[in-house]
Amino acid sequence: MHYYLIKRIAHLILTLLIASVFTFIVVNAAPGEPAEVLARHLYTGLEEAAPPELIAKVADRYDLSKPLLVQYSDWVGGLFTGNMGYSILFKKPVSWLLMLHLPPTILLTTVSMVFATIAGIIFGVYSALHQNKISDHLIRAATIFFASMPGFWVAVMLILVFSLWLGIMPVAGYGWPLFIILPATALGLHAMVSIVRIMRTSMLETMEKPFVMFAKVKGLPMKKVIFSHACKNAFLPVLTVIGMSFGALLAGSVVIETIFSWPGIGEMLMKAISARDLVLIESTIMVIVFLFLIVNFVIDLLYHIVDPRIIYE
């Protein structure tokens, strides 16, 4: 167990390190001299060209004249110390911006995930228990249909129907609880679909297992067989899907937050990308990757708690 933990953490750190190098290269290889872009942003306006002495000054001021390797190590060090540099778009420290914008994203993804998990398990179990009946076919047809709808279009349709036509939901904005319903639905839909499907398959398999048969034979009421025997054992694969879906949720939040003007890191990332705010882009991407990996790491460890039979080599 300890050996496994150390190995997993080493893998995690290695993956993060390679990912940070990759992100840094990709973002910094973007066309346009960063110092020149920055000088235009800060002083001369977007259309005018910045004078060379100003560019040199800006490069000096924001550490852009250093070699790339030094810039990289500064940045990675900053990821730990919280000193990630300045955003040229918001004219604030990057760490301050991330602290400001992380909570809304975490709120949104958590609510979506909880919604997706609960709804997914309910529909999945229902579908499995009514195998090959009309309701099962309907649920399966609905899942495959929802899985084919792009998340941003679902969001637009929700706004169209509930905000513009029916007028019962706010179009966009940040708040609780009314404002979160539409974005959380749009964001969680795909995750819900995957959970329904895995829960259904897993439940069908579990219902065939001898211990469920035994529980039935010894005369337990069906409710008890399903909820305290079968469901618990069928849940394990869902855990994996939750971990994988979390990445999709973080990625989807970029689009959903932009549509609903939800002030999270996704929306900030989009703004940063359109303004070519390199430091902000790379730091935000690293935070997203970090969150995704950490969640999957925790879920990996949770396996052992959920199912003590799983022992790590």
């Binding site: 990912a19 990445g247 990625a251 991407i285 997203i288 990757v289 990996l293």
Partner: peptide
């Protein structure tokens, strides 16, 4: 590569 959510 799989650690990056695809859209990101």
């Amino acid at each position: 590569f799989l650690a990056f959510p695809s859209i990101i």
